[in-house]
Design a protein around this nucleic acid. Structure first.
Length: 228
DNA sequence: GCGACAG
DNA sequence: ATCTTGTCGC
């Protein structure tokens, strides 16, 4: 990619690093509304489109109490390490359409588990002003450090430590299924992020239902658009 | 040329 | 992310 662009994007991310707080800025009793965020992409008439879907679940009942979506033209390419610049504009537009105010957002991707601690979950927190969590399906290698595979037991995990700093966690959310990668977005600690994730993991997916429902919603929107 | 590469 | 059938296993 363009070197000047990369320097510019790195500067944006580096300037935000000092604002990250990896401790809870809330008490667990305050967490009532949890949002799952995801996007889907497609091409129509040589134009790239994306839809962001957000599903807001009640922590206790796990019922969807609010949802919103935003569809638009994709303006930014996918560049590994800079996912937020591509997806965040869609997320913010969708959030505007929510009636509720989620207490925490869960993203499909990383947060602190990023070479500059600036995965989409962390970068999003500064726009949203709310705690965020990153839940990724695959590992984005940092400084050539691999992760250790956790044992095959539900809830088993291994922290991903690079130069004595914990970046994130590989979590076995379900038995006999590939693990997922949990990291703090902002204003939340890793244990709480892990517990929150496990709380929403059910039998049909290794991903928390927050993210899972958002994923299903994006696919429905995509089909709706492609069938017309 | 080859391997890496969140989504 | 997306393109895509069958197939192995519970």
């Amino acid at each position: 990619m363009n070197n000047n662009l990369e320097r510019e994007l790195q500067k944006v991310q580096n300037d935000l690093r000092s604002k990250i707080k990896l401790n809870n800025t809330f008490s667990s009793e305050e967490v009532v509304l949890v949002a799952g965020v995801d996007l889907a992409y497609w091409t129509e008439d040589n134009t790239d489109y994306a839809v962001c879907c957000i599903q807001v679940l009640d922590y206790q009942t796990k019922q969807v109490i609010d949802k919103a979506e935003y569809t638009g033209i994709v303006e930014f390419p996918y560049i590994s390490g800079y996912l937020a610049f591509r997806e965040l504009p869609f997320v913010l537009k969708a959030v505007e359409r929510l009636e509720s105010i989620p207490d925490v957002y869960m993203f499909d991707g990383n947060g602190y588990l990023h070479s500059r601690h600036m995965g989409i979950a962390t970068q999003a927190s500064f726009e949203l002003g709310k705690p965020t969590v990153g839940v990724a399906k695959t590992y984005l290698k940092i400084n050539n450090v691999d992760f250790t595979m956790p044992e095959n037991k539900v809830g088993a995990f291994e922290d991903i430590v690079i130069e004595d700093e914990v970046y994130g966690r590989v979590l076995r959310s379900r038995l006999d299924v590939k693990p997922i990668f949990i990291s703090c977005g902002n204003w939340i600690d890793l244990d709480t992020a892990t517990n929150l994730t496990m709380h929403f993991v059910e039998q049909d997916s290794r991903l928390p239902v927050t993210t899972r429902f958002a994923d299903l919603a994006t696919h429905e929107v995509k089909r709706r658009y492609q069938n017309k």
